[in-house]
Nucleic acid binder design. Structure first.
Lengths: 146, 146
DNA sequence: TTAGCTGCAAAGTATTTGCAGTGGT
DNA sequence: ACCACTGCAAATACTTTGCAGCTAA
């Protein structure tokens, strides 16, 4: 199974335009810069990382506000891999797509996994020298009350 | 597959004793109370929740320190399901055991899943009325550099 | 007795919010 | 021109840390 499912820049901006129009929001310069920085990032990113990548030209509060906005319109996912900081990543074309990560318990190093087979993933990780493996499966969606 | 893998109170205190002895730490009254509260909780818990369950009889800082301690000796896992707050749960007998959750994107409701089959889990959730399902698989362990 | 542990208070981070001014549309 | 958005600063939430006294072993 091919897992290169990230939104392209065009797709992302297209979605953004629709969402903006749908709720009377605006495409401002900071908003554009933040999305571009997010798209450029190969790894999951935090507000602080975007802030640094934009060389502090955009206010941190604005970045927090926009990452939340992007999250609400489904442009990014929240990942939050056992960290103390909120971590996001660019959304996938297929919302049902799986998200696989490896996280080191000691240094926090995060790596997005390319394969989608749990067995193959584990074997691949072992080959790479990762030890003491365990994994966690998390479902998200809407519960019947929502 | 049976997934009732939570540590019993006896097993948990046994592990605690070993860890305490191994590093010259002590079994204090607050430490005991915190572990008991954690064991009683059917759901993942935060420091604040333990604080409330103990009716604020134990200092919050002490709770934070001990949850970290329990985490370091493997007595509890960190779950952190897309939340802004650190969330823990009592450890499993088998460290390689999977951890399955359902999290509602809207209200944050969390439910521990009993089944271990991904397909069965998804079918079960749909039957319960959950919609827009997606899931995430997270591996943890030690990377080669650690 | 002697460290480890606790409570309390103060300090740190991460994130959010109020508000006046700016800028898309 | 209107109203959403931004930067700035202050506020809040969560968590950690310093320290003096307490207590398990």
């Amino acid at each position: 199974m091919n897992c290169d499912h990230r939104l392209t820049s065009e797709e992302a901006f297209g979605r953004l335009q629709s969402a903006l129009k749908a709720q009377g929001a605006r495409l401002t310069s900071p908003r554009k810069m933040i999305l571009e920085a997010a798209l450029k990032s190969k790894k999951p990113f935090s507000a602080e990382i975007i802030f640094q990548n934009l060389k502090e030209q955009v206010d941190l509060a604005t970045i927090y506000r926009n990452l939340t906005f992007f999250y609400e319109i489904g442009l990014v996912h929240r990942v939050d891999i056992g960290a103390e900081t909120a971590v996001y990543e660019i959304g996938s074309k297929d919302e049902q797509h799986h998200h696989h990560y490896f996280v080191c318990k000691t240094c926090g190093k995060t790596e997005a996994l390319e394969s989608c087979s749990m067995v193959a993933v584990e074997a691949g990780l072992k080959k790479k020298g990762y030890r003491n493996l365990s994994h966690r499966l998390e479902f998200t969606g809407l519960c019947s009350a929502c």
